[in-house]
Design a protein around this nucleic acid. Structure first.
Length: 427
RNA sequence: GUGGCUGUGGUGAAGCGGUUAACACAAACGACUGUGACUCGUUCAUCCGUGGGUUCGAAUCCCAUCAGCCACCCCA
């Protein structure tokens, strides 16, 4: 048996890569409109970084990280998400000194040891953004607007934006206690997972899919009714700015997060089209994280989107690239001329395909058709002696003649064929 | 990590104990007498994810293993 790849680690083959490039290029283009700059950080970080940022009681840190000891005895981990590394870099290089606002984006592979499914792999890719240094809700609304803008640019209008506020370190503990009080009498109705999490993370019950938990949490106190004055004001203003920007959203007071660092605004972009992998992008505010990791007392907000999931939402159409010209030839001398022309034309920016083996003319024409070449140049022996060859517009099926000269050929490719009398293609 | 389903050529698939392992698409070549898309012809799985077992005989039954999918879990 031949060697195979690792489970959950996928090859992205040439046909698919075009979609990826489109997604990445769109992200870069849109994000730069909003003033974001790319940052590239390593794939490996010290294990401690993730334990401290994501939270060591979370599932990600507890059982999904690719952690190991390197030859120097250091505990290191393949990044399971992007925020921690970006923030670490922000702090380490004191980026806040150069500018009190940092607007960064990144893209690349992330790693989590999960059971693979469609839209969920062990090596997966995220495009993410982080803003450090602004607590004003304008930036919350701007980040969300940019995220929706990005999806709109891809022609994806179906994912819906859901927002919520998780409160801050002042009001969340109170809410949590309140919710625990509410759940205490209904503990029996909860699923085993939520029973287990009752102490550690009772909020999860709000988001649980089991019918028992759904019923038990009907009438549960809502986070949004229990925000402190500051958080409540922040959420209201965020919504006002979203309205002002024309960004559509819905409020989902049951949305919770799996990473511990989130505060205040949280959000998800959800789709119906990916089965249980419904979140295609998600993020939120993390006002304490930077300080907790040893940086300045800076607020932050960011999101990450799953590239695999976005690619899955894209249609297959329209990702082919058509060569400008296919050169068909007959005989060795014509082959040499074809090669010479191809080289010159390619150097001047024209994309040219050729049949390297010089098969039959029919075979070469078929290949030109398969490549969807716009034009085909046909060089035979008499064309060679005449110094001019037939050039065919493959879409229109008409044929003309052109001198065997790179510049004349390029000119025809630009302005089209003028059919020569007497000769010419049949439809 | 838990539960369920699936695994036949590049793709979609038929076959369900004894067949030359159908068929369609794709692909390669050829015919239509130097030029693609239509039509026609030829070729294309010594082999049925892998390893073992049962049997006179297995792609078809059993076991294991690997992989994929779906749901849970979690999350982007």
């Amino acid at each position: 048996m031949a060697l195979t790849g690792i489970k959950g680690f996928n090859d992205i083959l040439p046909g698919e890569v075009r979609k990826w490039q489109h997604v990445e290029a769109t992200a870069r283009r849109v994000f730069e409109i909003y003033g974001f700059a790319e940052i590239r950080v390593p794939v490996l970080e010290k294990t401690e970084l993730f334990a401290r940022s994501i939270g060591d009681a979370t599932d990600i840190v507890e059982k999904e990280m690719y952690s190991f000891t390197d030859k120097g005895g250091n505990a290191i981990t393949l990044r399971p998400e992007g925020t921690a590394g970006v923030i670490r870099s922000f702090i380490e290089h004191k980026l806040h000194v150069a500018d009190s606002v940092a607007k960064l984006y990144y893209l690349g592979p992330m790693f989590r040891y999960e059971r693979p499914q469609k839209g969920r792999y062990r090596q997966f890719h995220q495009i993410g953004v982080e803003v450090a240094g602004v607590s004003d809700p304008k930036v919350d609304a701007q980040v969300l607007t940019m995220l929706c803008h990005f999806f709109a640019e891809l022609g994806l209008t179906e994912p819906r934006l859901q927002i919520n506020s998780l409160g801050c370190h002042d009001c969340r503990p109170d809410y949590r206690r309140k919710l625990q009080d509410f759940l205490r009498e209904r503990l029996d109705a909860l699923c085993d997972d939520c029973k287990r999490r009752y102490e550690t993370n009772p909020l999860r019950a709000l988001d649980c899919k089991s019918t028992g938990c759904k019923e038990a949490t009907v009438g549960a106190p809502s986070v949004l009714d229990n925000l402190c004055a500051g958080c409540d004001d922040h959420f209201t203003r965020t919504r006002n700015y979203l309205d002002s920007a024309g960004t559509a959203y819905e409020i989902n007071p049951r949305m919770v997060r799996g990473l511990d660092y989130y505060t205040r605004t949280t959000f998800e972009l959800v789709t119906e089209r990916l089965g249980s992998q419904s979140a295609v992008a998600a993020g939120g505010r993390y006002d304490r994280l930077i300080e907790e990791l040893g940086g300045p007392d800076y607020p932050g907000i960011g999101f990450a989107l799953g590239v695999e999931r976005v690619v899955l939402l894209l249609d297959d159409e329209g990702y082919g690239n058509r060569p400008d010209l296919f050169i068909a030839f007959h005989g060795e001398p014509a082959g040499n001329e074809a090669f010479r022309l191809m080289s010159r034309l390619q150097r001047s920016g024209v994309s040219v395909e050729i049949d390297y083996e010089g098969k039959s003319l029919k075979s070469q024409m078929r290949r030109a058709d398969k490549f969807k070449a716009r034009y085909t140049l046909i060089i035979g022996e008499d064309e060679l002696t005449r110094g001019a060859a037939a050039i065919k517009d493959m879409d229109r099926g008409i044929q003309g003649e052109v001198a065997l000269d790179p510049e004349r050929i390029a000119a025809v490719l630009r302005s089209g064929i003028e059919p020569t009398a007497g000769e010419g293609g049949q439809p």
